[in-house]
């Protein structure tokens, strides 16, 4: 039996004293590729930010690998939504990917040969090695997303959390990202991914969490990905009964 690598118990999160997440219980199965789906304003990004401790919940518990501490976050590689970084920053593709290694570095210590090797192989995996000396501002949307996935790979974490990584990118990049995710799964990694396109859920993921403030259904795609469950989450604009 597989274990729960992330366990969320009775989570309540509020923005401006309005609940965005309500009594949410969920688990992330180890070695799964899990999609989070739900309508706009369902609290998907809020959920991810709570896991990353970017927001303080009102109540509830989040265990990562059985631990609640800040240190546990080191087991997670986080790929944020696009547009949250300073694109004018003078840095090359290789440099950005190397930033993934800083999780394993102390203060002042600089990346060594080993780190460079890891970064280069991550770039190769994302088919971006030819671009390693480009400035990030010169990349297309899809290429940028590849760089951020390469940075996440560099972190060498057990869990990957991504906020809509497939939003607004070209089809080649989309296929490449999915391929990479599947091959990382074979190496034992787990994925929690906010996903928008309901048509591709079945093809790309093996587990799914359907949410709207709280969980409506979660589990194996084959068991819970039914039109009944989807309708339930999407039709209720507000969850009042």
């Amino acid at each position: 039996m597989t274990e729960d690598i992330i366990k969320i118990k009775d989570l309540i999160v509020a923005y401006d004293e309005k609940p965005a997440i309500w009594h949410l219980n969920m688990t992330l199965q180890e070695n799964s590729i899990t999609a989070i789906v739900g309508p706009n304003g369902a609290g998907k990004s809020t959920l991810i930010k709570s896991i990353m401790q970017l927001i303080k919940p009102v109540s509830g518990e989040i265990h990562i690998n059985g631990s609640k501490s800040k240190k546990a976050l080191r087991d997670i590689a986080y790929v944020p939504q696009k547009g949250e970084v300073n694109w004018e920053f003078p840095t090359t593709v290789l440099d950005v990917v190397l930033m993934g290694r800083y999780v394993h570095k102390g203060w002042i210590k600089r990346p060594n040969k080993e780190d460079h090797k890891i970064a280069m192989s991550a770039l190769r995996e994302m088919k971006m090695e030819a671009f390693r000396n480009r400035q990030i501002s010169e990349l297309s949307g899809g290429q940028r997303q590849r760089v951020f996935l390469a940075r996440a790979i560099c972190q060498d974490a057990d869990i990957y959390i991504m906020d809509e990584p497939l939003q607004g990118i070209d089809i080649t990049t989309e296929k490449l990202i999915i391929e990479t995710i599947k091959s990382l799964q074979e190496q034992g990694k787990s994925f929690l991914i906010v996903h928008h396109n309901l048509d591709t859920v079945k093809e790309y993921f093996d587990h799914v969490v359907i949410m709207n403030k709280t969980i409506f259904a979660s589990g194996k795609i084959s068991e819970v990905w039914t039109s009944e469950n989807i309708d339930k989450a999407y039709s209720e604009v507000s969850a009042v009964r």
């Binding site: 309005k18 609940p19 309500w22 009594h23 403030k213 709280t214 507000s238 969850a239 009042v240 009964r241």
Partner: peptide, 10 residues
């Protein structure tokens, strides 16, 4: 409160 905060009954 549940109505105010748009929440379903527990």
């Amino acid at each position: 409160s549940r109505i105010k905060y748009e929440l379903k009954p527990y």
